[in-house]
Amino acid sequence: MILSLARPLAAAVLSLSGILASGMLAPARSAEVNVYTTREPGLIQPILDAFTAETGTKVNVLFGKDELVERIQAEGANSPADLLITVDISALQRAKDLGITQPIVSDVVAANIPSQYRDPDGHWLGLSQRARIVYASRDRVEQDEITYEELADPKWKGRICIRSGQHPYNIALFASMIAHHGEAETKAWLEGLRDNLARNPGGNDRAGAKSIFAGECDLAIGNTYYVGLMQTNESEPEQKDWAKAIKVLFPNAADRGTHVNISGVVMARNAPNRDAALALIEFMTSDKAQYLLAEANFEYPLKPGVKASEIVRSWGELKADTLPLTEVAARRARASELVDEVNFDGGPKS
């Protein structure tokens, strides 16, 4: 069952009693599980439907945005939420930091998901991953290898596009640079990257591919899955042209590997259907669900041995940076501060 929460929280929050009375989310019953999620319905619903088909357990879903973390906190002990499924390490860590989660204790999960994609205390775990890569012009960029460090090389002056430096996807990348190089070197790198930009940061990842197609820049930083979404976009076929204009470069493939982030899940601290919720988590780490998760959004499975989709494999092999995501999460605040200190969003020579 679906409820959209696209509007701001202040305008969209319903009282718990209203939710239960309306049947939008069910009260606690062993044959049901209540999921809050920021993922698009088309990406997560097939997995939840497969779980219901296999187990008979009904899944009630509340779709929303980033406000769902604070919503669970506000609902307190009476929250109907069993699970929160969301994207980006920051949202998962924020849920833990706010005290709205409980440890996920499962030998199945521990066997299926590598440790670097699980919270050491068990409060969150990854379900799928995406890489922060470089989109490069097929016509104007000859090289097929690159590093993140190279993006600050003056040879790229006026040739790079990127969304806001404060966007969570970029903050995670910058935090990983701090983990690998320290604050001082990362600050200097951010200044070099800023001064190589073709314009002030803005738009989204797809806008970077569009700008390459239009000849406005030669490189753009974006997530892998957007390439697949553009390649298969039937409703906006012009995006297929954007995708044809770029080639995928996996930064640092020859050394530490490419920075990755995750979509993931937490179990709510006051989950009323804990056993059913744990069963759903274990299902989402299974071969079947990992394949469905990866196929639906052109992401990478986290369970070893499960193949990515054919389209994803066509981009080349991903060698993922093995830096634990806890190391990334711990440096996100400092990364955000550095973005402001160098006035990254002010653009070149700001």
Rank of each mutant, 00 (worst) to 15 (best):
M1Q: 13
L3V: 14
S4W: 12
A12D: 14
V13G: 00
S17Y: 05
A31G: 07
A31K: 11
Y36E: 03
Y36I: 02
G42I: 08
L43E: 14
Q45C: 11
A50F: 05
T52H: 07
A53Q: 08
G56K: 08
N60D: 11
V61Y: 03
V69E: 03
R71D: 01
D97V: 10
L98C: 06
L98H: 10
S106L: 06
A110R: 15
N112K: 12
D121K: 15
L125R: 02
R138P: 00
R140E: 04
R140Q: 07
V141I: 14
E145M: 07
E145Q: 11
A152F: 04
K155R: 09
K155N: 00
R159H: 05
I160S: 03
G165S: 10
Q166P: 06
Q166I: 14
Q166S: 15
I178E: 04
H181V: 05
T186R: 03
N204S: 11
R206D: 13
G215Q: 00
S235D: 15
W242S: 01
W242C: 02
W242L: 05
W242M: 10
K247W: 01
L249M: 12
A253I: 09
D255F: 08
T258A: 00
N273Q: 07
R274A: 15
L278T: 06
L280N: 04
I281P: 03
D287M: 08
L293V: 05
A294G: 15
A296G: 06
L302Q: 03
V306I: 11
V312H: 04
K319D: 07
K319R: 15
T322W: 06
A329C: 02
A333T: 12
V339D: 07
V339R: 04
G346C: 05
G346F: 08
